[in-house]
C-alpha cells in the first residue's frame, strides 16, 4: 500500500514537474545576469567619472580657499597696500629683536588646526563620518571588549561583503570578529533597516529577534534562528552562507541575552544596544539563515 502510494505521489510530482519550463527559467536567469553585469559596468564607468569630478572639485575648492585665506591674512596685515608681499609684511611688522619670521611658504594660522591630535573638532571628511557612525553605533552597540578599536560598520552592500569576507579569511583575529559582528548594526539615524531587540542563545542555536521599520512603526516582530549545528567548528568556517561562527563550545549566553564569544585574542561580548538596527536585506543576502516569523 505504502509503495503504491509512493509511486502515485511520485508520478504526480513528475507530471507536475514536466510542466515546469526549466529551459525558459535558465534563459531568463542568464539574461538577468547579463543585464546586471551591464548595470555594474555602467556604475563602475560613471562612478569613476563622478569620483574624478568630486576629487577635482574638492581640490579646486581647497585651492581657492587657501588663496582666499592667504589674501585675507594679507589684507589684515596691510589693508591699504595694494602691492603687498609676504616679505614686505615681515619686514614692516616685525618688531626689533623679534625672532625670525616664518618661512614664506607657511600656511596662515587661520588655516592650520591649532592641535593636530586629540581634538575632535578638527575631524573632517571620512573621519567625521566615522565619528558620527561610531557615536550613533555606540555605546553598547558593538563588542564591549574592543571599545578602543574603531568600529567597522558596513554602510553599503559592498562594504558588507568585504567585511564578511575579511572576517571569514582572517581566522581568529579579534578584528575579524569585530567586523563580522558590527555589520549587524546600523546607526538608527540612517532611518531604515531593522531594530535588534534581543539576542538569545540556547543549546539548539541562537535567535536574533528584531522588528522592522515599516512606515515609521515598529509593529512587526521577527526572529532569525541560527541552528546550533551551523555554529560548530569547521563546518561553520567553510559555510558560504556568510556567518562567521566560532565553535559552538566557544559561545555562551550571558545575562540579558548578551552573547559571549571566546576569540583567539580573548573574550568579546555582543550586546544589543538601544538605537541600533539590523539590516535584514543584507543579512539575508550574505548569510542564508532561517527566518521565523513570530505571530
Amino acid at each position: 500500500m505504502a509503495d503504491a502510494f509512493d509511486a502515485l505521489m511520485k508520478s504526480i510530482a513528475d507530471e507536475a514537474d514536466a510542466k515546469v519550463d526549466y529551459a525558459a527559467m535558465h534563459a531568463a536567469v542568464l539574461q538577468k545576469a547579463a543585464a546586471m553585469r551591464r548595470r555594474r559596468a555602467q556604475f563602475v564607468r560613471y562612478g569613476a567619472m563622478a569620483a574624478t569630478l568630486v576629487v577635482l572639485a574638492g581640490v579646486g575648492t581647497l585651492f581657492l580657499r587657501a588663496r582666499g585665506d592667504a589674501a585675507r591674512s594679507g589684507e589684515n596685515a596691510a589693508p591699504q597696500t595694494v602691492e603687498f608681499s609676504m616679505g614686505d609684511q615681515a619686514v614692516d611688522m616685525a618688531p626689533e629683536g623679534a625672532p625670525e619670521e616664518p618661512a614664506p611658504g607657511c600656511v596662515p594660522e587661520s588655516v592650520c588646526p591649532t592641535e593636530k591630535t586629540g581634538d575632535a573638532g578638527v575631524a573632517s571628511g571620512a573621519g567625521a563620518s566615522n565619528a558620527a557612525r561610531n557615536e550613533a553605533g555606540t555605546p553598547g552597540a558593538g563588542i564591549s571588549g574592543h571599545a578602543a578599536q574603531e568600529p567597522l560598520i558596513a554602510m553599503s552592500a559592498d562594504e558588507l561583503v568585504s567585511l564578511c569576507l575579511a572576517a571569514r579569511t582572517a581566522d581568529d583575529s579579534a578584528e575579524s570578529a569585530l567586523a563580522s559582528f558590527e555589520w549587524l548594526y546600523e546607526p538608527v539615524s540612517a532611518g531604515k533597516g531593522y531594530r535588534l531587540l534581543e539576542i538569545a542563545a540556547d543549546a539548539s542555536g541562537i535567535t536574533y529577534t528584531y522588528n522592522r521599520a515599516a512606515a515609521e512603526t515598529w509593529n512587526d516582530e521577527y526572529a532569525i534562528f541560527i541552528p546550533g549545528e551551523s555554529l560548530s567548528g569547521t563546518r561553520a568556517e567553510t559555510d558560504a552562507a556568510g556567518v562567521f561562527a566560532p565553535a559552538e563550545t566557544d559561545v555562551t549566553a550571558g545575562a540579558a541575552g548578551a552573547l559571549i564569544w571566546a576569540l583567539g585574542g580573548g573574550e568579546a561580548v555582543l550586546t544589543p544596544g538601544a538605537g541600533c538596527t539590523l539590516k535584514e536585506a543584507e543579512l539575508r543576502e550574505f548569510c542564508a539563515l532561517r527566518l521565523v516569523e513570530i505571530k
Partner: peptide, 8 residues
C-alpha cells in the same frame, strides 16, 4: 545553501 537561500 540553495535551500536556505530559496526559502529566505
Amino acid at each position: 545553501w540553495l535551500y536556505r537561500v530559496t526559502v529566505n
